[in-house]
Design a protein around this nucleic acid. Structure first.
Lengths: 248, 248
DNA sequence: CAAATATTAATTGTCTGACATATGCCGAGA
DNA sequence: TCTCGGCATATGTCAGACAATTAATATTTG
C-alpha cells in the first residue's frame, strides 16, 4: 500500500483512495480489519483526525464499518445488495430531482427496464411470487387507502414483479429505477377511477405471469406505461395551469 | 434544520444525514453555500473536527465540494449524470466481485437491460449514432488489438447503442451494468475466431438499427448474448480444469 | 488618477494532546 | 469453577492552535 502523499491534494482524500483501491483489488479481504487509526496515522505520516476523515469517507460509501472497544477497529464491509440498492435509490432520486428530469423520461426508462424483466419472470415465477403480486393487488383495492400507501403498494408490486425474474443483479438495477420514481409518482392524486385502471392492469400482468404468457404480460405493461404517462401528463397540465393563473 | 443530536449514535453521521436531507429536500439549493465549519460546529454544538468528518462523508458522495480561502466553504454539488455513472460503476463492480456473482447472472442482467433499449434505439437512432457504432466495429477488426482494447471498444459499442435510445436515465442505468461487466469480460481471451463472431453480431445489430428493424436487432442481441455466455462458459471450464489439476 | 503592492479577514486543511467511552481479556477472589 | 473488577486497546469527541489559500481592502507609488 502506497504511503507517500502528494501535498498538493487533500491528504484525507488520497488516503481514502489508497484504502479503497486496496479493498477493490482484494488486497484487504472482506471482514478484514484495517490497521488502527493511530497505526494508519503513523504509516501515512499524518495526524489521527486526518486519518479519521479518510475513514469517514469510506464509511459513507459503506465500504467499511467501525467498532469501538478493545478488539474494535475498521472492518471491510461486504457490500450487500440491500445496501447497494439503498445507495442507488438515493443517488437516482437526487439525479432526477437535481437535473430536472421530466416525468416522461423517467417513466420511459423505468418501464423499458421493467419490460426487460418480463421474459425471465414469465419462465421463473414461482407460486410465492404470484401470491405476492396478488397480495399487493388486493391491498391496492382497499377502501380508504391514502395516495402514499397506494404508491408504496405499487412499488411493492413492481418490486415483486422484478424479483420474479430471479436475477439479483437485475433486481438491484430495477429497485433503483422504480423506487427513485416514487417521489414523482407521489405527486399524482389517484382518483378512484385511476386506481381501478391501474389495478386492472396489475391484475392482467399477474394473470399473464401466472399463465407464463409473455405477449399478454408485455401488453399489460405497455398499457400500464401509457396510462401512467397519461396521468403524469394531466398533472403537468394542472400544474402548468396553476402556474399560469398565479402569474408565475 | 434539526440541530439536536442523539448522543447514542455518531455525531458526524447524524450531522451528515441532516445536511443530506436538507440537500435532497431542496432546502439547500444547488451551488448554495453551507455555513462555515465553525458555524456548523456552533449550531450542532459539537467540535470542528466532528463537523469536518460529517462534511467529508458528504464529499465522498459528491454531494458537496469545498473551496479554501476568504469566500470559500462547502457548496452543494449538482449531481451530474457523469458523476453518478462513475459512482454506479464502482458500486456495481464491487457488488459483482464481493458477492461472487457468477458470469451467467451478470450476463443475463446486462443483456436483458440492453434489450430494453432496443425499441427506443430503433426509432430514435440518428446517423451520428450509427456512425459511432460502425466506428467501433471497425476498431474491433483492427489487427494486433489487445484483448483489453477489444473489450474497451466492446463497451464503447454498447454504450453507443444505449445512447441511441436517447434517454439519459436509461443510459445511466445501462452504463453501470455494461461497464461493471468489463472486469469479467477482460478475463476472456478473445481468439481471432471469437472476435470475428462478435464483430459479425455487432454488424448485424448496427444494420438492424439502421433499418429500424426491431426484430432483427433483438435477434442479433440474443445471438450475441448466447455467444457471450458460451465464451464465458469455456472460461469457467478451463479455470475449473486448472483448479482441479492443481488440486485446489 | 491609476496601477501595482501590501495588509487583512475569512475559511479550509492539518496538527497536537487530551479525555470520554466501549469492549474484550485476564487475573484475583469467592 | 465461576464471577467480578481492573487493564489494555480502540474509537468518539473536544479544545486550541497554526498553516495555507483566497478575496477584498487599504496603501503606496508612478
Amino acid at each position: 500500500m502506497k504511503t507517500e502523499l502528494d501535498s498538493e491534494r487533500d491528504f484525507s482524500q488520497q488516503i481514502a483512495q489508497t484504502i479503497r483501491d486496496a479493498i477493490v483489488s482484494g488486497d484487504l479481504p472482506v471482514d478484514g480489519r484495517l490497521p488502527s487509526e493511530a497505526d494508519l496515522a503513523t504509516r501515512f505520516n499524518v495526524s489521527r483526525p486526518t486519518v479519521r476523515e479518510a475513514l469517514k469517507r469510506l464509511a459513507a460509501q459503506n465500504l467499511i464499518r467501525t467498532q469501538r472497544g478493545a478488539t474494535g477497529g475498521a472492518f471491510v464491509n461486504r457490500l450487500s445488495f440491500a445496501q447497494a440498492q439503498e445507495h442507488m435509490v438515493t443517488t437516482a432520486t437526487l439525479l432526477l430531482s437535481m437535473n430536472a428530469v421530466d416525468f416522461e423520461t423517467a417513466c420511459e426508462a423505468r418501464f423499458a427496464l421493467e419490460r426487460a424483466c418480463l421474459p425471465l419472470a414469465c419462465t421463473r415465477r414461482t407460486p410465492a411470487h404470484l401470491a405476492g403480486l396478488r397480495a399487493e393487488i388486493a391491498r391496492q383495492g382497499t377502501d380508504g387507502l391514502s395516495d402514499e400507501d397506494f404508491c408504496a403498494s405499487d412499488v411493492a408490486f413492481h418490486r415483486a414483479l422484478v424479483e420474479a425474474a430471479g436475477n439479483p443483479v437485475l433486481s438491484w438495477h430495477m429497485a433503483g429505477a422504480v423506487e427513485a420514481m416514487q417521489p414523482l409518482m407521489n405527486m399524482i392524486t389517484f382518483t378512484a377511477r385511476s386506481r381501478a385502471q391501474i389495478i386492472a392492469r396489475h391484475t392482467d400482468l399477474a394473470t399473464a405471469l401466472a399463465n407464463s404468457d409473455l405477449v399478454a404480460a408485455c401488453a399489460a405493461l405497455d398499457d400500464l406505461a401509457s396510462y401512467t404517462l397519461e396521468l403524469g401528463g394531466e398533472i403537468r397540465t394542472q400544474r402548468h395551469a396553476r402556474r399560469t393563473s398565479t402569474g408565475q
